[in-house]
Amino acid sequence: MLTVSGLKSGYGALPVLHGVDLAISAGEVVGLLGRNGAGKTTLLRTLGGALVAQAGTIRIDGRDVSRSRTYMRARAGIAHVPQGRGIFGRLTVEENLEVGTRAAGKIDVKRLLDEAYAHFPILRDRRRQMAGTFSGGQQQMLAIARALCGQPKALLLDEPSEGIQPNIVQEIGELVPRLARERGIAVLLVEQNLDLALHASGRCIVMDKGLIVHAAETSAFRNEELLAQFLAL
């Protein structure tokens, strides 16, 4: 579903990604691990279009979007939920979700909202509330729900557990693989919370210095030596 090959990117003259290769199938959750500064967020920003790829290709469902602008990538099926959530604080919860339906094209907005509310009932209860007044955990739910409203083919989640109370982290950990399975979404999950990453992902990859240095089934990451080697844990 999401295929990346030889991807290079960075900030101006500062290269960060030095040739990343990656493939995620529909319905699969891949955990992306790595130390701070390894290039995880840069990879997600480059896939989403916030950063321009300097080399390499990004394909979504076979379609090359490497040179596409951000909004065209969203319409092609890439949804990026960044660190800090990026919800629209001056809009209500429902308006945030409505705005999120653009990438899905001209379809039944109400049905999409109902689907989002089915996964996150608290959002239905608070649909008239201004999103800026939400807590961190609620904002994270809203950000994921809003991304789902665009009916994405690939979902890029950047540290969804950051600054969130444990019970919501657990909820997200159960929801993400279920969503991927039920909707056939390819999920790339960047996470510092190892428990969440190992719980939600079927496969994990490790980045270091802008390259993918290790990839294995999640079960292999329950090995202390491996964690010490790649993540200095």
Partner: peptide, 9 residues
Amino acid sequence: MRAAALGYN
């Protein structure tokens, strides 16, 4: 940036 990432030009 978020609006663009949701498909808006």
